[in-house]
Amino acid sequence: MRSASESTCFAELSAHETLTAEQDAWGSVAQLAAEYETLAAAAQHDRWASLVRASGLSPSQVSDVVNSDAFGPLAAELRRAEAHFVDVASLLPRVVAARGFEDAQDIAAVLRARVAAVVSRDTGAGRTRRVPRLVAGLIPRALGPMDAAMHQALVDRADLIESRAAAVLDQALLAGEPWTRALGPAPRGATATAWRQNACAVAAYRDRYGIVGVRPLGAVPDSTTQKLDAARPHAALETAQWLADERRTHDARRAIVSPGLPPLVTRF
Rank of each mutant, 00 (worst) to 15 (best):
M1L: 13
R2N: 09
S3R: 02
S5C: 01
S7T: 14
S7F: 13
E12R: 15
L13P: 03
L13V: 11
A15F: 00
H16F: 12
H16G: 12
L19D: 05
L19M: 03
E22A: 14
Q23I: 15
Q23E: 14
A25R: 15
W26F: 15
S28C: 10
V29K: 06
L32K: 10
E35G: 07
Y36M: 05
T38M: 09
T38G: 11
L39D: 10
A42P: 02
H45T: 06
H45P: 05
A49I: 04
L51N: 00
A54R: 14
S55Q: 00
G56A: 05
G56E: 02
P59K: 05
P59C: 04
P59M: 04
Q61D: 08
S63Q: 15
F71Q: 02
G72R: 14
G72S: 14
G72V: 15
L74G: 01
R80A: 07
V86F: 07
D87A: 08
A89G: 08
P93F: 08
V95K: 01
A97W: 05
A98C: 04
G100K: 05
F101W: 07
F101L: 03
Q105E: 14
A109K: 01
A109T: 02
V115T: 03
A116Y: 00
A117E: 12
V118Q: 08
V119T: 09
S120W: 10
D122F: 00
G124W: 07
G124N: 10
G126W: 00
T128D: 12
R129N: 12
R130V: 11
P132T: 07
R133V: 11
L134M: 10
I139F: 08
P140S: 08
R141L: 12
G144N: 06
M146Q: 15
A148H: 14
A149M: 05
H151V: 03
H151L: 10
A153I: 00
A158I: 04
D159M: 11
D159F: 09
L160V: 13
L160C: 14
L160Q: 15
E162T: 14
E162A: 13
S163G: 14
R164L: 06
A166W: 02
D170I: 04
Q171C: 10
G176M: 08
G176S: 05
E177I: 07
P178E: 06
T180W: 07
R181N: 13
G184C: 06
G184Q: 09
P185C: 10
P187T: 08
T191L: 13
T191G: 06
A192F: 01
A194G: 02
Q197C: 04
A199W: 05
A203S: 07
R206F: 03
D207A: 06
G210R: 04
I211Q: 01
G213F: 09
G218L: 02
V220N: 06
V220M: 09
P221R: 04
S223K: 02
Q226L: 01
K227T: 03
L228C: 03
A230K: 07
A230R: 15
A230N: 03
A235N: 04
A236Y: 03
E238T: 10
E238S: 12
T239N: 08
A240I: 08
L243C: 05
E246I: 00
R247Y: 10
R247G: 10
T249I: 06
T249D: 12
H250Q: 11
R253K: 13
A255H: 08
A255M: 02
I256A: 01
I256W: 05
S258M: 11
L261T: 13
P262R: 10
V265N: 00
